Simulated scan of single mutants.
Amino acid sequence: MLIRTEIGVDAASIDSLLRRSFPTSAEAELVQQLREDGLLTLGIVATDDEGQVLGYAAFSPVTLNGEDKQWVGLAPLVVDESVRDQPLDKQLIYEGLDTLNEFGYAAVVVVGDPDYYGRYGFEPAARHQLRCRWQGGEAAFQVYKLADDAFSGVEGQIDFAAPFNRQ
């Protein structure tokens, strides 16, 4: 299995993975829209020996109180059912975090299971007076600090890129 940054030829395989892994086409359409709008900050893929995408993590820009603070959101994260016994999700997340750190991004946010993402170092966003627009998402809204000063003097509303509002 090869873990790497996505390239153009991966788009169709990523789309196929998203469509077969989720109950609706919403995630596939989201990634397609992010890509078309130039809002896909980073995509990490796990490919087999034939180049088939079996895992994917997408990162796109978010704003804090309407300002770009060099933060990104992680969504979607998916691993093909045939390889869920392998730690691909962990590899995708860590490769993404390492790459974003190298590029100078300050923080990553995610909406998801706190127990799951907590294993990878994410913590409740509310701890830093940060919130997102989704009601009832307080416990699921989490952050990961890449820069030492990422949470210094910040609080408020995190907004994901516009295509997320179409969900």
Rank of each mutant, 00 (worst) to 15 (best):
129 Q>E: 14
110 V>G: 13
104 G>R: 10
14 I>E: 02
159 D>L: 12
67 E>G: 00
167 Q>N: 06
45 V>Y: 05
149 D>V: 00
21 S>W: 11
156 G>Q: 15
55 G>S: 06
74 L>P: 06
105 Y>S: 03
123 E>M: 12
17 L>M: 09
10 D>T: 02
134 W>C: 01
42 L>D: 10
107 A>V: 00
75 A>C: 08
30 L>F: 05
89 D>L: 08
122 F>A: 14
16 S>R: 15
49 D>M: 12
91 Q>G: 01
18 L>M: 15
157 Q>D: 15
161 A>I: 13
35 R>K: 08
161 A>R: 05
138 E>G: 11
1 M>D: 02
85 D>L: 13
44 I>T: 05
130 L>F: 07
151 F>S: 07
82 S>E: 10
67 E>L: 13
157 Q>F: 10
104 G>V: 01
67 E>R: 14
6 E>H: 00
17 L>S: 12
47 T>R: 10
82 S>W: 00
153 G>E: 09
48 D>R: 09
68 D>K: 04
40 L>R: 12
99 T>A: 01
61 P>E: 09
113 D>Q: 04
42 L>N: 12
81 E>Q: 14
75 A>N: 13
84 R>N: 07
119 R>C: 11
101 N>K: 14
59 F>R: 03
164 F>W: 11
107 A>K: 04
164 F>G: 00
23 P>H: 12
153 G>Q: 08
64 L>Q: 04
